[in-house]
Amino acid sequence: MASNGSDVRPAAARTPLRATADNALKIVVVGGFGVGKTTLVGSVSEIRPLNTEEVMTRAGEGIDPAGSWGKRSTTVAFDFGRITLSERQVLYLFGAPGQERFWFLWDRLFSGALGAVVLVDTRRLEDSWYAIDRLEHHGTPFIVARNNFGDPTHTLEQVREALDLPDSVPLVDCDARDRESGKRVLIDLIHHLTDLAEAELAAAAPSMYEESTA
């Protein structure tokens, strides 16, 4: 893990953003324990993945009405990396645990995110069912990436079937340790988002026409 105690590292150890950076975007990588989230974030990130945590209560109404930290609250750790896209844009990648009990963290991470990557390990597909379900309900667009730990026994078609994944959701293979492969997954997600956004525009166009001529 990236945690290194409570002391601030010397400023020189950090890579600051450009002074012109003014627009940050988010992509969330969600998946079960040990599926390779941190590895994927790290392989494409320009900084070593950092780890931080969020404290939350059940209802998400502040941390604790009584003002005392820790009593009724839950702490959950997540990690992140970043990619400078241009003078002004920077993309943050968040790796978040996929188990049901972390749903309250995802709602925060997902809101405002461009989209999500569900990372799956074919040996433990059931770990990703809940995350897929949650993303569908939240309306966050996503793709699924099978992190290939050298499993030759399952084809992507079989994985799709086992996940009960509709054809409209892309399913790709990746090696989370490989930078090019990780980059490919992100590009696949952006292509998928572009397809969805174009389809939405096309669908919206006729109804706008109807309204204006009604």
């Binding site: 975007l25 990619i83 400078t84 896209l85 241009s86 844009q89 993309l91 461009l114 980059k183 992100l186 590009i187 952006i190 292509h191 988002l193 572009t194 956004a197």
Partner: peptide, 10 residues
Amino acid sequence: TLKQVLHGLQ
């Protein structure tokens, strides 16, 4: 936005 992100990633 998507186009800019894509270019940045590529």
